[in-house]
């Protein structure tokens, strides 16, 4: 199945204006509203054979030129039999950025979703164990957001000091 056939199938199934598509170099993207993400991904996995979730990531579009939504989440899907790649993309917004979890479809999404949550605070609805993964549990901000300074807010200096005589 080529990309065009898949997109046509999706159009048939979900209606012509359910999503928009864009193409850049060899990347083919399907842009969806967040409500429809889960059903489309499920359809792609079950009926179109996209069995590998190659990558799941997020970004904060706060200062991006002409951006309308704040957080983007993308899924790079691969059909391991035919080798077709497809990128599904969705957007979500403050105050409670939420995206449905695809853990029930691909178990590999587990940690990747936790990472996006850790870095951006995007909540994945239905994830079985959504905790911080890379940063300490007590960390209160989401460091990859564009309004968080690169050098942090002083967390890295905030430890007791051990000197020679006392050790």
């Amino acid at each position: 199945m080529t990309r065009e056939e898949i997109v046509n199938k999706l159009r048939e199934r979900f209606g012509a204006d359910a999503f928009s598509t864009s193409e850049f170099r060899d990347n083919y993207r399907i842009i969806l509203p967040v409500e429809r993400v889960y059903s489309v991904l499920e359809y792609l996995k079950i009926s179109c054979g996209f069995d590998l979730l190659a990558e799941l990531g997020g970004a904060d579009y706060l200062q991006y030129p002409n951006a309308r939504d704040r957080y983007g989440v993308w899924y790079v899907l691969v059909n391991t039999t035919t080798g077709v790649r497809l990128i599904v993309k969705t957007f979500t917004n403050d105050p409670e950025p939420t995206v449905p979890s695809v853990y029930p479809l691909w178990k590999g999404a587990d940690w990747m979703e936790r990472e996006v949550y850790d870095m951006y605070g995007v909540v994945f609805d239905g994830h079985p164990d959504l905790r911080r993964i890379l940063l300490p549990d007590e960390f209160t901000s989401f460091p990859m957001r564009k309004d968080y300074p690169m050098r942090g807010r002083g967390e890295r200096h905030n430890f007791p000091i051990i000197s020679r005589p006392e050790s």
Binding site: E138, R153, N158
Partner: peptide
């Protein structure tokens, strides 16, 4: 160096 309003508590 960090102003108290900016400070976050993550000490060990």
């Amino acid at each position: 160096d960090v102003p108290p309003t900016e400070r976050m508590v993550a000490p060990g």
